[in-house]
Design a protein around this nucleic acid. Structure first.
Lengths: 160, 160
DNA sequence: TCGTTCCTGTGAACGGTTCGCAGGTAGCCG
DNA sequence: CGGCTACCTGCGAACCGTTCACAGGAACGA
């Protein structure tokens, strides 16, 4: 359960530049590592380790799940990868870039709304003013009730 | 990993009033259930299931871990209990009351700052205005960098 | 006090993740 | 271009937190 603190985000254009960065850091670029990068570059949304190991259900060669986890950890330390959690369930992994998406999770319908960080800058500023805290909503979502469910709930209360 | 959606929070003064509420709902008040309530009333902070099963390391009779989980789920459906996650690691359980504490988790030093909901009302209002979203920070924490770590980080950057 | 139904305790199973180890290979050096 | 060596892989077993199945036990209404 111990998760080494990730390095600062490092954006790479493609698998090759990511590989170069690995080598710069004295790490080897094995087939298994390249594959993890390949999959992460191919998909544009956060994915579970299992899905990476399956090569996106066959679009890529499959690889060993244990190695996938190890490599995700390594890549996260380098700063090429980040992981997040959207509610319960397995961790999700994605390429790290400068300003990762942030998330609003509705607890009653499980809908996840993806927002760009700029939309939360005022929230962030407020938290910083009040607590000196620099918030990121890219690791855990903001949990609550979405507009639809809130409306539905108040309608039900009025007319059960 | 499926978590039944919890009922609305129901505050009880003590184990007896909680027990009464259970019976009102047609649920039995067994020794095992009473014990879970006993432990939750005895501690003032969120605890893991394992700690409940151990009877707070011996202050109470220990009980079966499986039953503890089952009963926590039941109590959560009734609305007497809520659960939350502070970073990675096991889920934590606490008595539900009207306005539960909310949390700021520093990703670099793992410090958890507990805040009373009123302190986040402006943040909540902002989120509601912008997204129609009613946010609660009592289930997942707000993750980011605390003031101390932010200061330390910028100092290190200036003088590595 | 009895009966029914719900609940318990136990053990096994689960999903997600980590570990230990023997063998393989990336990348440096000659 | 071939060899050395440390790093990395693939495999399996183990791990943690949590859930399930089932046979026996007890809470509560009658």
């Amino acid at each position: 359960m111990t998760v080494a603190h990730p390095g600062p985000a490092v954006a790479a254009r493609d698998v090759e530049s990511a590989a170069a960065l690995m080598r710069e850091r004295g790490l080897r670029v094995s087939a298994a590592r390249r594959l993890v990068l390949e999959v992460l570059f191919a998909t544009r949304e956060p994915v579970r380790a299992e899905r990476i190991a399956s090569g996106l259900e066959g679009r890529f060669p499959r690889s060993d799940l244990g190695s996938v986890y190890r490599n995700l950890e390594t890549l996260e330390q380098v700063g090429l990868v980040r992981h997040l959690h959207l509610g319960h369930g397995p961790g999700l992994y994605a390429l790290a870039d400068g300003r990762p998406s942030e998330y609003l999770l509705c607890e009653s319908c499980d809908a996840v709304r993806v927002v760009v960080p700029a939309q939360l800058d005022r929230v962030r500023r407020l938290l910083h003013e009040r607590f000196g805290f620099e918030a990121r909503f890219s690791h855990f979502p903001i949990v609550g009730t979405c507009a639809d469910c809130a409306r539905r709930a108040s309608a039900e209360q009025a007319d059960p």
